[in-house]
Design a protein around this nucleic acid. Structure first.
Lengths: 335, 335
DNA sequence: CCGTGTTTTTGAATCGTTTCATGAACGGAT
DNA sequence: ATCCGTTCATGAAACGATTCAAAAACACGG
């Protein structure tokens, strides 16, 4: 009843454990006839390799962990999809961890991943407070690549999109459309992406003398967008356009506005961020700032394996992509 | 440079490894003063437990694996979200594997999970061909719970939703709305959920003499929905309503119809399946068959831990939930 | 039949924990 | 001083694979 080990297989095939191991790992190094005998024994006993033992010996697992802010956000699933093929073709396995924008959850994951001696880590940190934890991992020889986030002066590779520029694009677009009062919806402000997008937006507003009102949300999801709209509709001198920190928030905002009979874009325009697939399929197709999601993931994985390969004499690289604005109905000029 | 182990900690603290282990696992069993000394050494050396060694000794990992058809489908992320709290409160960890509706990918995951000696498995199998593989795992003492899928006569616990009934609900709704020719969009037909939903739909159509045309798709995503519409619009005597195997397909279909200037619901009604959050926020809010997603996940995890706890004398349970139809604009009667 | 070179196989050492039987240390009662 | 009961600490034996130096088996020319 207890699980069968290599020893059992060895006994059944009348060989030593070393030979069984060879059949599994370097079949070409064992004689045709022996190999067959061992393989028969394996099939017979239903033997399955024990990965813990393997890893213990190897000192490292084959797992690449990706820690994201929200697995339910299509943006991140696309990033993961971009990274997977590369990892798998390198013989690795991907494991996805959801921090849920919560520093404590993130830390729990990091602790666990370190105990598991993962091969590498791709992470979109919740905020700057994670920095020391992350450095701890890379200090323990676990290469780390920051995703959707510049490394700043942190000692890591990174793949990011210029969020300040993205924020500018969105704001410029709205200003060009003639809006004189804009709302920004998003939060928590500690999330760097949020801060940067807002920052870019604010720059443009100041440059062009447009009023900006900020509605902070506790998270970047559907729900948050809807609630922020409730708040916004309460205020007098309502903004004529909203820029949302991501598309989920924007979809929530859109639904909130629609529920209150506010016409989009005639009475209130919307710009989102990420250009997830659902954006184009929304009630009113959303204008959005597009990021190269899959490429973000692919490049991150690439940097990770480069770092692993180069070992000691590796120099960190920081790749920055430029976002672009996709204009759709939610910011169309009134007909 | 090499990782520090318990031995190093023991030496630094001037105790034996057994004691260090005790500090970590049963701190109350070691004297106050010693404990402090060991903990200081741990912090000093930056010691991190090696999980592989732990698992090797324990013979089991603490990981509960969830294998889903598509991580990007909000239906599944909600199921996962439902399961997570229970698993974590039991001291476990969740790992999500995406089979992408591909039997081969699914099998690769299963092989790996078996090698990892996971604590348990929650799986939505791609189709029936997985059955023998899955039984192999449970034969090796890894409890398995089927998710969103009845166990039939397979020896497992299961949590499912009555898809045949769901299909009936959708069709009935459309028939009541006066439609005389309905299209079903979805596939591959080998996926049981697809077959059942179509089956229920077909029953109702036959009972009420309504014509049914089936458009098979290679997958259950956005893209598939859009392509099926291209095909449907080509045919003469076009159906006046479509029932889609899930909401992603429905959203794709909606976009396809809109792009071709076909008005929803006036010229073509749509019913989706799953009632994901995006359904209500779609261009035309989607009518959909709702499943208790989170509860599905929660119950599955519950059954899994029950099985683990009961051990030898466990009897498999099969829970079936009933779906309900949520009517929205996409099937509203013409105004 | 021997020596030499090549191909296979062996088996002990190792990875880092946890567990557990054993022993040490100590206090208090006799 | 001795004995007993607690409370703590010890260290060796697993767990199951991989690795590698060394032994065994074989081939073949002389």
């Amino acid at each position: 009843m207890t699980t069968t080990s290599m020893k059992d297989v060895a006994k059944a095939a009348g060989v030593s454990v070393g030979t069984v191991s060879n059949v599994l790992n370097r079949p070409e190094a064992v004689a045709e006839e022996t190999r067959a005998r061992v393989q028969a024994a394996i099939a017979d006993l239903g033997y399955v390799r024990n990965d813990s033992a393997r890893q213990l010996r190897a000192g490292r697992s084959r797992t690449v962990a990706i820690v994201v802010l929200d697995v339910a956000n299509p943006f991140f699933t696309d990033v993961v999809r971009g990274a997977e093929p590369l990892v798998e073709s390198a013989g690795g396995v991907v494991t996805v961890c959801d921090s849920g924008e919560d520093v404590r959850r993130e830390r729990r994951h990091l602790e666990l991943l370190e105990e598991q001696r993962v091969l590498g880590l791709l992470i979109t940190p919740v905020d700057d407070s994670s920095a020391s934890w992350i450095e701890r991992l890379s200090g323990h020889d676990i290469p780390v690549v920051l995703v959707d986030r510049g490394a700043g002066r942190h000692p890591h590779c990174s793949v990011a999109v210029d969020d300040v520029h993205g924020g500018r694009l969105a704001a410029q677009h709205l200003v060009e459309r003639g809006h004189r009062k804009i709302a920004f919806i998003g939060g928590p402000a500690a999330i760097p992406q949020v801060a940067d997008r807002l920052g870019g937006c604010r720059e443009v507003c100041e440059e062009s003398g447009v009023e900006l009102e900020v509605f902070a949300t506790p998270g970047l999801n559907f729900q948050a967008g809807r609630e922020a709209i409730e708040q916004m509709l309460g205020s007098e001198d309502r903004p004529t356009a909203v820029f949302c920190a991501n598309d989920l928030v924007a979809l929530g905002a859109l639904q909130g506005l629609t529920m209150h009979g506010v016409k989009v874009p005639q009475e209130c325009a919307i710009v989102g961020y990420d250009d997830i697939d659902f954006a184009a399929a929304a009630a009113v197709p959303l204008s959005s700032v597009r990021q190269p999601r899959a490429q973000l993931g692919r490049t991150a994985a690439q940097l990770l394996f480069d770092e692993i390969a180069e070992g000691r004499d590796h120099t960190h690289r920081n790749v920055v992509f430029q976002p672009e604005l996709v204009a759709r109905a939610s910011t169309a000029l009134e007909l």
